[in-house]
Design a protein around this nucleic acid. Sequence first.
DNA 1: GTCTTTGCAAAGAGTTTGCACCTTC
DNA 2: GAAGGTGCAAACTCTTTGCAAAGAC
Lengths: 150, 150
Amino acid sequence: MTHDEITFMRLMQAKGLRITEQRLLILDAVCAGKGHTTFGEILLRVKETEPSIDQSTVYRTLDLLCKLGLVAANASVSGGMVYEIVGQTPHHHLLCSLCRREYAVPQAALQAFFEQIQAEYGFTVTHKHLMLEGVCETCRQRDDEAGQTG
Amino acid sequence: MTHDEITFMRLMQAKGLRITEQRLLILDAVCAGKGHTTFGEILLRVKETEPSIDQSTVYRTLDLLCKLGLVAANASVSGGMVYEIVGQTPHHHLLCSLCRREYAVPQAALQAFFEQIQAEYGFTVTHKHLMLEGVCETCRQRDDEAGQTG
DNA sequence: GTCTTTGCAAAGAGTTTGCACCTTC
DNA sequence: GAAGGTGCAAACTCTTTGCAAAGAC
């Protein structure tokens, strides 16, 4: 069990909601994708195991999982939605705009920054999955080398 | 002239593109909305002056303005796109999830944080319009009071 | 006069909804 | 057995595209 299946079951029972094959499959599919997973990827993965599953079920279930706080939904750059399991430790992401790779950043690294915003603006940041775009070290070095020699 | 209309004209002429009534109107509409403006708001504002304008024109023009670097497009939390004039000074936003109000934050306030990310992760943040969700001071105080008395 | 841009309409993605049937508890 | 969940199909929103007419230079 790679994810909080027990948390899921407990939450469901507490709310009088049914635990179904489909819901477990969809939760699994979100877990299987490290980092942010697009809707299409989740649907594809779920359909591998159970082809009869409908996209409306996936949408409804993802919505439910978000409300339960097990999954976080974010609007992706391309317009669609991306989903991610909310782990024990809140964290954020660095997305390299060149290689499209994602790097996780623990909440601790942003804590000081959030506190500064709080102090200066009285604004309490509650953002759970911040996505910072930029250029990663690998890509930057590659670019630097290309620039030097050219 | 509230915005870089001259910059716009110069850019257009340099690229051999036509300066039209519609394009000026759409640029105005993006300027008129402080902070992030949704597509719907822009369309509405433009239609007030010129009802015959079509949404496809607005989409095409916004796309053009983005390519010219005059407007920045971001995926909003609700899925649609939001647009904003790219000013001289880069800045970011605090979005209150309770009152939906937006607060601008100068780039300077985030500089130290971006440098920390650079130092710790070798990652150069290039994000131009960061959108941080949270709770603003006004809403937090209201909630605090409600919580105390209740 | 030429080439770009526009409005219209229709198509295309992505997402939501209504409903009859099925499943979980 | 009752309440909730699923699949199907259709609707709905947001965005893009093709094309003939209109407009900028």
